[in-house]
Design a binder for these strands. Structure first.
Length: 370
DNA sequence: AACTCGGGGTC
DNA sequence: GACCCAGAGTT
């Protein structure tokens, strides 16, 4: 697959800037602050996450962690709790680590230049460019999913959007648009304009080409089928897994939760012990029988991730310390990684979304039954 | 270069 | 269901 004609339409920078000022988004809570801490936080939250979702988290997070010092000084658990439900939890751990690096190595002053930003944990090329453009007017281009779509339509680019070679070339083109005529004073409006264009006009399924400032010169529009670009990227087939969530619950409603390892799904979050086949099924039944315990088996609850389909089987085991069964003998339990929590207290932890839903339901069950 | 990581919006 | 979203880090 050969690269398309690299000649850009003329005046892209100026047209995007003018369009953004007239028709772009202006009311988002992280806009116009000029505060690199807030811009950085929003950019990390927005990685692979839609604006509508981030809006539910951003204000609460800023209220709890008002600046980089507060974030760096906070326990990781509190950061994960504030992130709980947003997904891609590695972002939260890297966010916390980045805050500590900024405090220790940069005296708490958040850097605003691309080169320095790029060295920080969790900040890649696109996020570094966004912060540098928004906060310092640096002439560097973002390249997120929105921009990739806009550019590939502009040039009717048939290449695989996920291929490294395509990304590298698109970045060079994006950078070319900026280096040609960009002025630092307009970099923020331009960067915001690219994002707004992709999010509100050059949308994936039903683009509003009549409202697009780049209409003339767009080869996808000229071809009459703009949604043909970018072509869908190849994805690995989704796998299905069954997980058993073993919930030990004492008479007073207090439950055993333990911290998961930092890698993998739900890394670093608190959850009941998770068992997979075959330990979750036959192994669990054998243990229950041996220990003389009876459990409540809930029907499997589907939980979809991007790359995996989970079937979550909740297994609730009434637990009494007097029963003689040692906690250390329970399948999946890591004694030194966990603790007993009342559902209400547990809701303040970093929890996976399905676990949060279950515990919230437990809280409302107890309060409504009184 | 391929793989891994969440949860939800939207069709 | 399928596909994607203001991507980055690891292997």
């Amino acid at each position: 697959m050969t690269a398309p004609d690299p000649t850009p339409p003329s005046g892209v920078f100026a047209r995007v800037v003018a369009w953004q000022r007239r028709a772009g988004r202006h009311g988002l809570p992280w806009q116009g602050t000029g505060d690199p801490y807030r811009v950085w936080l929003s950019e990390i939250m927005l990685q692979q996450t839609q604006v509508a979702t981030v809006l539910r988290y951003y204000e609460r997070f800023v209220a709890r962690f008002a600046n980089v010092h507060a974030l760096a000084a906070a326990p990781l658990d509190e950061v994960l709790a504030a992130w709980s439900g947003l997904g891609y939890y590695r972002r939260a751990r890297l966010l916390h680590r980045c805050a500590q690096v900024v405090v220790q190595r940069h005296g708490g002053r958040f850097p605003c230049d691309f080169a320095t930003l790029r060295t920080l944990p969790g900040i890649g090329d696109s996020t570094a460019a966004a912060i540098a453009a928004f906060c310092a007017g640096e002439r560097v281009s973002i390249l997120d999913g929105n921009v990739r779509r806009v550019l590939m339509r502009l040039w009717a680019d048939d290449r695989d959007p996920a291929a490294v070679a395509t990304q590298r070339d698109l970045w060079a083109r994006a950078q070319g648009l900026v280096l040609a005529t960009a002025t630092p004073a307009d970099m923020a409006a331009y960067t915001q304009g690219l994002m707004d264009l992709g999010a509100t006009v050059c949308t994936r399924l039903r683009p509003h080409c009549d409202a697009c400032p780049l209409l003339d010169g767009c080869q996808a529009h000229r071809a009459g089928t703009p949604t043909a670009w970018p072509r869908p990227r190849a994805r690995a087939p989704r796998r299905t897994e069954r997980w058993w969530l073993l919930l030990l619950r004492r008479g007073d409603g207090v439950c055993w939760l333990q911290r998961r390892a930092s890698g993998g799904i739900w890394g670093g979050l608190w959850a009941p012990p998770v068992l997979t086949e075959p330990q979750g099924d036959q192994g669990l039944r054998a243990w229950l029988q041996r220990a003389g315990l009876t459990a409540i088996w809930a029907p499997p609850q589907p939980h979809a991730l991007t790359h995996r389909d989970l079937a979550l089987h909740w297994v609730v085991v009434p637990w009494t310390d007097a029963a003689g069964e040692a906690l250390a003998h329970v399948p999946g339990v890591l004694v030194d990684q966990g603790a007993w929590w009342s559902p209400a207290e547990a809701l303040a932890l970093g929890l996976p979304a399905p676990v949060r839903v279950w515990l919230a339901a437990a809280v409302s069950r107890t309060s409504s039954s009184r």
